[in-house]
Design a protein around this nucleic acid. Structure first.
Length: 569
RNA sequence: UGAGGCGUGGCCAAAUUGGUAAGGCUCCUGACUCUGGAUCAGGCAACUGUAGGUUCGACUCCUACCGCCUCAGCCA
């Protein structure tokens, strides 16, 4: 046991490594050759159409982390170019999650929709220079004309309209003269390109949908490829970091900004995060929510930021995780154990220890005076003595964990058994004298005696005891609820399922088990939601918002490492 | 020969731009301990996808294969 105090530096050192990765190498090179005059300005650009998950956290930590490390800036920008999918609810949730993770965009909260007018003017500029045209093809026809992966596409019959005709049509698109989907504005690039993104991509579509921020001001909305580079350019972003699937889009990103002869950031793609035993796509997470496999976006079993938060994960732990997994271009799946390691690492240093008995077995200490109650001092956290002490009541009748007693213990069972002496944490040594059973033979109570000289948990003679148990005073115990969570999916890779089956088929039927018989030490009678504790010998737990005065409810974040459990198998 | 990427121990991932394979997680020992936790010490484990080539020397350069991922939304 170490008993050093935990400084903020210690905790911070968990998170910020000096590790190198290919994006830093690129930035260093830019700094060397002066491409961005030594500036570094990144952005996190979520679309507000769902909740953030741990995969987004990787991106958030990367973008904000690089800005911090290089003394640059990072913007929070909502990429709200598709009003049919986006909602204010998501904007609020995302904002809250990023802030909870510990990042600050200061006054740089932006929205793509703020640039709609600017984008529109850039579009007219592209029309003027002959780089864009209004196309009357239907969606089906556009698909046909686009060709296939191996065959080139064909040019649209509307491709050679005059500049003035294009300008007139485009203005009338904006003015709302045409029904939804009737025409599009397209970039005039190369229908024969091997890169499908370059086959005259659509820049604007006509969609009458009320936008969360611009309302009904627009009936044409910009497409991602057209909008995103402009957003980055307008904000003078230096490094536009995105995921691998946008690699094929980079030529288009560059093409638009070069055609406009305007400032061009460097797009860099990295591999998105995948974790074992869970799914990460918004669509699949939505399925879990909609079909009731979980109780909502913030169900503690969800890999969402809000789910992890409710589960008890700390921002520090998540940041530390994102630092540890690194950044690369190789598709990979990180072992969930890595995430669990990170929470334990942080909570070990910061979570106060308390005692909770999940499966109670009554113990009467026959040698202890009937009406006596002692208030014993208990260290809150042996890793950080500055967290001080609390007192826990001790009395003649207590409860211990049923699994901590065995009639005929096997070798290496360092717990209570007939005739054996163990230590009650913070309290006394006790010896088991008697086992009381009901008519069915089930153990219902133990009779023990204690050694008054062992008060506090040690004796002058220095004798060793073979185990330390947690306990709770019967008359002082608080009844409450504990929710034990396990992986949501039984398999490492839920997406890798046999033909004809669904990813939800491998959902773990025991991903949650609720215990309503739990007994907690008195200090937990009233808890604040999101307060994190270590239940000694059990694991880390987080008070849930369902807690009521006198009836605390806890979510198990993660178990303690359990070498006994390993021995047993 | 559609286009673009990626392949380093069970899982992530470095390698100062050719110098002779970091680190973390997992797993296994042992020490210590008022949490079978933590901590500490140590260990198992990679001929860097394969086959050639260049070189005194290659994870790094060249050639050819193999495997995996992404792209045919008026989604992002």
């Amino acid at each position: 046991m170490t008993s050093s105090s935990t400084s903020p530096e210690d905790i911070r050192s968990l998170e910020y490594g000096t590790g190198s990765h290919f994006i830093k190498n690129i930035i260093n090179e830019h700094n060397r050759n002066g491409r961005f005059d030594g500036r570094i300005h990144t952005r996190f650009p979520p679309e507000p159409n769902g909740y953030l998950h741990i995969g987004h956290a990787k991106s958030i930590c990367l973008n904000f982390g690089l800005a911090r490390e290089y003394g640059g800036l990072c913007n929070l920008r909502f990429d709200d170019t598709n009003p049919v999918k986006e909602e204010q609810e998501y904007i609020d949730a995302i904002t809250q999650d990023v802030r909870w993770l510990g990042f600050d965009w200061e006054d740089r909260l932006y929205y793509a929709s703020d640039y709609f007018e600017t984008m529109y003017h850039f579009a007219e500029q592209l029309i003027q220079s002959g780089h864009a045209y209004v196309c009357d093809l239907t969606p089906e026809e556009i698909r046909e004309y686009r060709g296939t992966l191996k065959e080139p596409g064909r040019e649209s019959p509307y491709r050679n309209r005059t500049v003035s005709e294009n300008l007139d049509l485009f203005r009338r698109m904006r003015a709302g003269e045409f029904p939804d989907g009737l025409r599009t504005l397209r970039a005039k690039i190369d229908m024969g390109s091997g890169n499908l993104n370059m086959r005259d991509p659509v820049m604007y579509r006509i969609t009458r949908a009320t936008h969360p921020r611009t309302g009904d001001a627009w009936c044409i909305y910009p497409m991602y490829d057209w909008a995103h580079g402009l957003e980055d350019s307008i904000e003078r972003i230096t490094h536009s970091i995105c995921t691998l699937e946008f690699e094929d889009h980079r030529p288009l990103y560059d093409w638009f900004l070069e055609a406009l002869d305007t400032y061009r950031p460097q797009q860099i793609e990295f591999a998105r995060l995948a974790l074992t035993h869970t799914v990460m796509s918004k669509r699949k997470l939505l399925t879990l929510v909609k079909e009731g496999f979980v109780a909502g976006w913030d169900d503690p079993r969800m890999p969402t930021i809000s789910g992890l938060r409710r589960r008890g994960y700390s921002p520090e732990a998540i940041r530390s995780f994102c630092e540890k997994i690194g950044v690369s271009k190789a598709n990979s799946t990180v072992d969930y154990a890595m995430l669990e390691y990170c929470v334990r690492e942080h909570l070990n240093l910061t979570a106060p220890r308390v005692m909770a008995v999940l499966d109670p077995l009554k113990v009467v200490i026959t040698s202890y005076p009937d009406n006596q109650v002692e208030m014993l001092d208990a260290l809150n956290n042996p890793e950080d003595e500055t967290m001080g002490y609390r007192t826990v009541p001790f009395s003649r009748e207590i409860y211990i964990e049923a699994a901590d007693f065995m009639d005929n213990p096997p070798k290496k069972f360092f717990r209570l058994a007939p005739g054996r002496e163990i230590r009650l944490k913070h309290a006394y040594y006790i010896v088991c004298d008697d086992v009381i059973r009901d008519k069915s033979g089930e153990i219902v109570e133990l009779r023990c005696h204690h050694d008054p000289e062992s008060r506090g948990g040690w004796t002058k003679d220095g004798r060793k005891v073979q185990g330390t148990l947690h306990w709770v005073s019967a008359s002082h115990a608080v009844r409450g609820e504990v929710r034990l969570y396990d992986h949501l999916f039984l398999t490492d890779d839920p997406l890798n399922v046999p033909e004809g089956t669904n990813f939800t088929d491998s959902i773990n039927p025991n991903s949650i088990s609720t215990i309503r018989t739990a007994l907690f030490e008195q200090s937990l009678e009233n808890v604040n939601p999101e307060a994190r504790y270590q239940f000694i010998r059990h694991g880390y737990f987080c008070a849930d918002r369902d807690s009521r005065p006198g009836y605390p409810v806890f979510n198990r974040t993660v178990t303690l490492k359990d070498t006994w459990a390993k021995l047993q198998k």
